[in-house]
Design a protein around this nucleic acid. Structure first.
Lengths: 126, 126
DNA sequence: GTAAAACTTGACGTCGGCGTAAAGGGCAAG
DNA sequence: CTTGCCCTTTACGCCGACGTCAAGTTTTAC
């Protein structure tokens, strides 16, 4: 398929797809006239790339890790980096859960505060 | 305390603290000569601000929401925004957990692949 | 009193992940 | 043939959360 169809099927812009190629996250065959042609597997690959971006990885990190992820071509070094990224992600998830819980308690406190009509307690920092 | 001590105690730079003030996330008393002086409560406030940044909120969003979070001064509108941010955060957490699980399976696959010495399977996209 | 450390405002630099023209080439339909 | 859509490369723009001088003032230490 060509770039427009891949864009429609993945929900990312053609600009982003070319950018991914520029960052070596994605390769494409070229027709005689220079147009990119993608295999079906590209769709899954885009989804993986997007997922890793969402996990906070940079283009560089993704470029270094995808050989391992896609092809299973794992060197011990790549495995270490993958594990490190996994642990980092784990800590971020834990942080976000703490933040969510804090938001919850803030919401609870503020809404019950509204119901009782209490005048803004100045010690409600936790 | 002055800005340097607050910076040391919170682990953020003085530049960031001045930026937070500029964005109306933080206020400070001023001495006659213009130097900022912070109350003890500022330490907790910085930690809250950092937590909300980590949750993906912008300066603008934090500025709009902190009256509620800090003072418990909740309007129905602020409560709705807080709840919306909480839900957004919830979805992000779920996404990240899915990504982490995918990384786990990739790591498992790749490392067992290394042990068996199997020649890179080309279908390992999931 | 003087030197160092900490503080002030102002303003430009950075970085990543694209957006957004601009200027042109390729290709099926009528 | 030409209309129209899809494609190509090049290249500047953007935004947010600061980093990083610069040049001057204030506080602290001896």
């Amino acid at each position: 398929m060509r770039i427009g169809e891949l864009a429609r099927r993945t929900g990312v812009t053609t600009r982003a797809l070319r950018y991914y190629e520029e960052q070596n996250l994605l390769t494409a065959e070229r027709s005689g006239s220079g147009q990119r042609h993608y295999a079906e597997t590209a769709v899954d690959r885009i989804h993986l790339i997007r997922q890793l971006y969402a996990a906070g990885l940079s283009s560089k990190a993704i470029a270094e890790l995808t050989p391992c992820v896609i092809d299973g071509a794992a060197t011990p070094e790549l495995l270490r980096r993958l594990a490190a990224e996994r642990d980092h992600l784990d800590r971020r998830i834990a942080d976000l859960i703490r933040t969510r819980d804090r938001l919850d308690s803030v919401i609870d406190g503020a809404s019950s505060n509204m119901r009782t009509g209490a005048p803004c307690p100045r010690d409600a920092t936790a």
